[in-house]
C-alpha cells in the first residue's frame, strides 16, 4: 500500500523508537502555521498587498452605492446635506453666528474636517470585526483592512473637499496661495486617521461593545472640537489646563489649521504646526504597533 495508514505509521516508518511529530517536523524544516511576522517583514507584506487595499476600497465604494438610485452621486450629496443640516441647526435656529464672521464657512469647514476623521475612525473600528469571514479564509496582513477603509474615506474626502471649496468660494472667501497648503494638512490628518483607525480596529475586534459605544464617543469628541463654536472665545473663563487640553485636541487642531488656510487667510502658527505633526506621527506609530501586536489573534472568534 502506498498510502500511510496514520500519522504514526509515517513517523515510525524507519522503525525503532517512535519519533515525535514535533521532531519529524523539525527534521524536515516545517514551521508552525501561526506566527506573527517581524515589524519590518510585516511592513513589506503590507506593501506587496497595496493593490488589494486599493481594489478593496474602490470595490466597497462601488458596492455601497450600487443599491441606491442616485448611485455615487451620494458621495457629493452626503457632505452637502450634512453641511445644510448643521448650518440650519447652529447657524439659523440656535443663532451661533452672531460673534463669528462668515459663520457658514466656519461651520462647514469644521464639519467636513471632523467628518473625515470621524468616518475613518468609525470605519476602522468595524474593519476587523465585520470582515471575520475574510480573515478566516485568506492570508494577508490584517492591517490591510483598516487601511482599505481609510483609503475609501480618502476617496470620499476628495468629493467632500470639492464641495467645501465650492461653498467657501460661494460665501465670498478669496483663493490665496495658502490653499497650496491644503494637501499638506490633509496628508497630516490622513496619517493621524490611519493611526487612530488601526488602534480602534484592534479595540473593536476584541471589545465587541465598542461599535455600540463609538457613536457616543465620536459625538462627544465632535462637541469638544470647536466645530460649532470658537474654542478660544468660549474658553476664556476655563482654567488654563482645560483650555490647553481643548486646543491640543487633534480634531480641533486640524480644523483650526484648515480654517486658517481657507477663511482667516493666515499662515498657521508654529503651535498649530507642532500639534498637527505631533498627532500624525504619534497616532501612526502607536496605532500601527498596537495593531501589529495582535496580528495572529484576529479572527479567532
Amino acid at each position: 500500500m502506498s498510502q500511510p495508514d496514520s500519522a504514526v505509521a509515517d513517523a515510525q516508518a524507519g522503525g525503532g523508537a517512535p519519533e515525535s511529530l514535533a521532531a519529524l517536523a523539525a527534521r524536515h524544516g516545517l514551521r508552525r502555521a501561526i506566527a506573527r511576522p517581524s515589524l519590518p517583514a510585516y511592513l513589506r507584506q503590507l506593501w506587496t498587498r497595496r493593490h488589494f487595499i486599493l481594489t478593496y476600497a474602490t470595490s466597497r465604494t462601488v458596492s455601497k452605492y450600487s443599491e441606491s438610485a442616485l448611485g455615487q452621486l451620494w458621495q457629493v450629496l452626503t457632505p452637502l446635506l450634512n453641511a445644510a443640516v448643521y448650518w440650519l441647526m447652529f447657524g439659523v435656529i440656535l443663532g451661533q453666528s452672531k460673534n463669528i464672521e462668515n459663520y457658514p464657512a466656519f461651520l462647514i469647514t469644521g464639519v467636513m474636517v471632523f467628518t473625515f476623521t470621524q468616518r475613518t475612525v468609525t470605519g476602522g473600528a468595524k474593519s476587523v470585526s465585520s470582515n471575520l469571514s475574510l480573515i478566516r479564509a485568506l492570508h494577508f496582513p490584517r492591517a490591510s483592512l483598516p487601511l482599505a477603509y481609510a483609503v475609501q474615506e480618502l476617496q470620499q474626502l476628495a468629493w467632500s473637499m470639492g464641495v467645501l471649496v465650492l461653498l467657501i468660494l460661494v460665501t465670498g472667501e478669496p483663493i490665496t496661495w495658502l490653499w497650496l497648503l491644503i494637501p499638506v494638512t490633509l496628508a497630516l490628518q490622513l496619517v493621524f486617521n490611519i493611526g487612530m483607525s488601526l488602534f480602534m480596529a484592534r479595540v473593536g475586534a476584541f471589545v465587541r461593545d465598542m461599535n455600540q459605544l463609538l457613536p457616543f464617543i465620536t459625538r462627544t469628541w465632535l462637541y469638544a472640537s470647536g466645530v460649532f463654536y470658537s474654542i478660544s472665545e468660549r474658553t476664556d473663563k476655563l482654567p488654563e489646563v482645560l483650555r490647553w487640553a481643548l486646543e491640543f485636541n487633534p480634531a480641533a487642531a486640524y480644523i483650526e489649521f484648515m480654517r486658517d488656510l481657507l477663511i482667516y487667510q493666515r499662515f498657521p502658527e508654529r503651535w498649530a504646526w507642532i500639534t498637527c505633526v505631533f498627532w500624525a506621527v504619534f497616532a501612526l506609530i502607536v496605532g500601527f504597533w498596537y495593531f501589529w501586536r495582535a496580528e495572529e489573534r484576529y479572527g479567532r472568534g
Binding site: A25, R32, L134, A137, H139
Partner: peptide
C-alpha cells in the same frame, strides 16, 4: 498541540473577498 507546515497552506476560500453587487 500544533500544526507544522512547509510554506503557506491556503484555503480555497476566496468567496469571502468577493462582493455580489459587483
Amino acid at each position: 498541540g500544533a500544526v507544522y507546515t512547509d510554506g503557506q497552506p491556503s484555503l480555497l476560500g476566496v468567496n469571502a473577498a468577493l462582493m455580489k453587487e459587483l
